[in-house]
C-alpha cells in the first residue's frame, strides 16, 4: 500500500512525529491526497508491529517520534524496485462497459458521452495543475501529470473509437 511506503520514504530522511508525517505526505503529493491523522497513526502502528519503524522518546512537546529501521529501509527499497502491473479491469469504466454489454443496456451512447466529458474535465484540471507545477518548478509532479495526461488522451481515443462502432 502506498501510504505505508510513503511514510517510510518520509522517515528515511529523518525521524518525525505523526503530525509531521501527515503534513509531509500532503506536501509530497501537493495537497492532492488528503490524509487523515487516524490513517497515519494506524499505519504507523502496523509499521511498528512489522519492525519497519521504531518509536523514539517523546519530543519536548510530548509527541512520539518515529524512526525507520534497517528492515524498514530494505522494505522501502524492495517496494521501489518492484514493477507495477496494470490489470485490464483496473479502470472501473472497463467493467462498466462489459456489464452494459452483458445486460444489453441501450444507453451506452450516453454512457460514453458522459465518460468523455469526465475525461475532458480531468484533462482541464490536470493541464492547469501542470501549469502550476511548471511555475513552481516541481518537475517530478510535472512528469506524473504528463503521464496521467497521456493515459487520459488514450482513454479519449478509445472512447471515440467505441462511439464510431455504436
Amino acid at each position: 500500500m502506498s501510504v505505508k511506503h510513503s511514510l517510510l520514504a518520509l522517515l528515511y530522511e529523518k525521524p518525525r512525529h505523526g503530525y509531521e508525517l501527515k503534513t509531509g505526505f500532503e506536501a509530497l503529493v501537493e495537497g492532492l491526497w488528503p490524509l487523515n491523522a487516524g490513517q497515519v497513526y494506524t499505519t504507523l502502528d502496523r509499521l511498528e508491529r512489522d519492525s519497519f519503524v521504531e518509536s523514539l522518546s517523546h519530543d519536548k512537546k510530548d509527541r512520539k517520534q518515529y524512526t525507520i529501521t534497517q528492515a524498514g529501509k530494505e522494505e522501502l527499497w524492495f517496494w521501489l524496485n518492484e514493477p507495477v502491473g496494470r490489470s485490464l479491469f483496473k479502470d472501473e469504466f472497463y467493467i462498466k462497459f462489459l456489464c452494459a454489454s452483458h445486460v444489453s443496456y441501450d444507453n451506452k451512447k450516453s454512457m460514453i458521452r458522459d465518460q468523455k466529458e469526465t475525461i475532458l474535465k480531468d484533462i482541464l484540471h490536470l493541464t492547469h495543475l501542470r501549469k502550476q507545477m511548471s511555475l513552481s518548478g516541481n518537475d517530478t509532479m510535472k512528469l506524473l501529470i504528463e503521464g496521467a495526461l497521456l493515459h487520459l488522451e488514450a482513454d479519449m481515443k478509445w472512447l471515440e473509437r467505441i462511439e464510431e462502432e455504436l
Binding site: K116, E117, T118, L120, K121, L124, H125
Partner: peptide, 9 residues
C-alpha cells in the same frame, strides 16, 4: 470544467 467539457464533448 463541466461547462467546457460538455461543450467540447
Amino acid at each position: 470544467a463541466r461547462f467546457l467539457a460538455r461543450f467540447m464533448a
